[in-house]
Nucleic acid binder design. Structure first.
Length: 569
RNA sequence: GCACCGGUAGUCUAGUGGCAGGACAUGGGCCUUCCAAGCCCAUAGCCCGGGUUCAAAUCCCGGUCGGUGCACCA
């Protein structure tokens, strides 16, 4: 099945390996004319559904970002997989996983490489395949990000983004301005992302350069609620973590029920509902579709709950979209690492007055007395005032600096309890992220549309693509390329194109052959100009899936096609 | 990264030391009044590099790409 689809994809111009004139590069594909058109239609549909209809914004950020971004995001650490190669059997293993299996260490990924090497030697960890000792064997790093240098020299390292999301997070302070500092708001981005996969597989299913369509929906976790009523009746197949852990099975329930019973977080549930309807509309076979919850151990470093949209293609379940509750992880990390603040000011309904203990240390006393410790003492006093104001009740207050207690006279601390009026507070929004893999969606839509059937005893290969996403909407043919039929057909082509249709003209070979060509690229409608057309200005419209024909006046073609398309999406 | 299998026109494939064949597709012509019809012509190929040999698509080595399994998959 997959071989024939991949063969068709190449032959008809959907996708094919890139740079094959130079031997090719694994994990990189070029979309041909049909594939590029299909991709464009799918992306336009995504934009319509997840940005326009939701009232979200779209941005377009660079694919290269400086190293510091990924230090903050955690990708630099979690992308550095530690690999140790067995000297005897040459098998490669994740060194941190070996350590975790052999010791009580739960998170060896956070250890340094030398510490992992030492631990391997100490516990005499052996190769799981052949039993050879790995003590003393070098642990090496394999980074899944593509690195590059920004500008000349190597002083300014950068990376190709491994997800489009970071391009949204790092611009948060600008984006919140555009949202007029009001939560909730959503920012989407469509673009390429890069991962230096160890082993690209299955044509465009696992590649090194791919297109993501990601939405980051920033919410106030305390006050914002998703508009669940819009999708509460949508029934979705859910394969929960607990079902996977036990013998449970995929269970179909409505979004309303899933949210109400707490099986799925409300926000995630909302997007599961929206996405399920969208997937069906673009041509995913919903009988081979499910939402699968991540098991606790497979959650990524930033995610507290995650559901994947999965589809069955070629007999395997693959991930199409991750719906992740990223919490405040990303914004908090950037807040910590970057110069800007990644928070948003939330005004209270009524300003509140609070008593706030403060200190104003007299540095002209502390400085001469404690020298270089003075600054640290002042900091400790501030912390103490906030955390334990009662400590300032006596004549002196004791603070601990570098493990030594210092006794400070209260009168030089400037301790006071002030009444302050607060009109709001700075909060770090939470993030709900639906992250779509577009290349996998393209493959899925093709695979689910692919069929081989028989018409009048002849085998036929067809793509049953939805008219809304098919690369070509109408094929126009003259029955014969003579007697003025071709000219009349060309007129109809021009007219349909001016009405916004993607039209393909073909007068080569027998009529049946031309229908077959369009069937293979999923064109839903074919218009044929015959001798009768010259007399009464009618044409036949042939529908791809049924191959049934209907005679329609040329003037009514537009109306006819449009009603067909809206009925069938 | 490891292992196994494979790579011959756009696609599918025959050829396993001695002139690289076919089918489909594509282009041109003839024919043709609605589902891959027929005839003629044309275009177009041995993954890359090294080695063995008088001679390599064929045998050997290395690489690369693809498929599969292991590992990996934020």
């Amino acid at each position: 099945m997959s071989e024939r689809l991949v063969e068709l994809a190449k032959r008809r111009g959907f996708f094919f390996p890139a740079s094959s004139a130079y031997g090719g590069t694994a994990g990189f594909y070029t979309y041909g004319p049909q594939g590029a058109a299909l991709k464009r239609n799918l992306l336009e549909s995504w934009r319509e559904q997840f940005l326009t209809k939701e009232g979200h914004m779209e941005i377009d950020a660079p694919t290269v970002m400086p190293e510091s971004v990924f230090e903050a995001s955690g990708h630099l650490d979690t992308f550095d997989d530690m690999i140790v190669e067995c000297p005897a059997c040459e098998a490669s293993h994740r060194a941190d996983h070996l350590v975790e299996d052999a010791t009580d260490i739960a998170d060896a990924e956070g250890m340094s490489m030398s510490a992992v090497e030492e631990t391997i030697a100490e516990h005499d960890i052996r190769c799981p395949d052949c039993g050879e000792s790995l003590a003393g064997v070098e642990v090496s790093a394999f980074n899944l990000m593509f690195g590059t240098n920004i500008g000349p020299g190597s002083s300014s390292p950068g990376y190709l983004r491994p997800e489009t999301a970071q391009g949204i997070f790092v611009e948060f302070s600008q984006l919140k301005e555009y949202a007029r500092n009001q939560l909730p708001f959503g920012v989407g981005q469509i673009g390429r992302a890069y991962r230096n996969e160890i082993s690209p597989r299955r044509s465009i299913v696992r590649v090194r350069e791919f297109t993501q369509a990601e939405l980051e929906h920033f919410i106030d976790p305390e006050t914002d609620e998703p508009p669940l009523s819009r999708v509460e009746e949508v029934a979705v197949p859910l394969y929960s973590a607990s079902a996977q852990a036990g013998d449970g099975e995929t269970e179909t329930m409505t979004i309303g029920a899933a949210a109400e019973t707490g099986v799925v977080d409300d926000w995630i549930a909302y997007y599961l509902g929206v996405a399920a309807e969208w997937y069906e509309r673009v041509g995913v076979d919903m009988d081979r579709f499910r939402y699968r919850q991540h098991q606790p151990e497979e959650l990524s470093h930033y995610s507290s709950d995650c559901w994947d949209a999965e589809v069955e293609v070629d007999g395997n379940w693959i991930e199409l979209t991750g719906f992740s509750y990223r919490g405040s992880y990303d914004l908090s990390k950037h807040d910590e690492y970057a110069d800007e603040e990644f928070t948003l000011f939330r005004q209270y309904d009524e300003p509140i007055t609070v008593e706030r203990p403060t200190v104003d240390p007299d540095m002209s006393v502390l400085g001469p007395e404690y020298g270089s410790e003075a600054a640290a003492i002042a900091e400790e006093l501030q912390r103490l005032a906030t955390g334990n104001p009662d400590a300032f009740e006596g004549d002196t207050v004791t603070v601990s600096v570098d493990g030594e207690d210092r006794s400070i006279p209260v009168d030089v601390t400037g301790f006071a309890v002030e009444e302050v009026t607060e009109s709001g507070e700075h909060i770090t929004p939470h993030v709900v992220e639906p992250s779509f893999g577009i290349d996998r969606l393209i493959y899925t839509v093709l695979e689910h549309a692919y069929r081989e059937d028989e018409v009048d005893g002849e085998p036929r290969t067809a793509l049953g693509l939805r008219p809304g996403v098919a690369p070509t909407t109408v094929g126009v043919f003259p029955l014969m390329a003579k007697d003025g039929l071709a000219d009349r057909a060309q007129e109809i082509v021009r007219r349909l194109r001016s009405e916004g249709y993607t039209v393909s003209y073909d007068d080569s070979g027998a009529i049946g052959r031309r229908y077959r060509r369009q069937d293979e690229i999923g064109t839903p409608y074919c218009v044929t100009v015959d001798y009768e057309s010259l007399e009464d200005d009618t044409v036949t419209v042939r529908e791809r899936d049924s191959t049934a024909q209907e005679r329609v006046a040329v003037d009514e073609l537009h109306t006819h096609l449009r009603s067909r398309m809206t009925n069938r999406q």
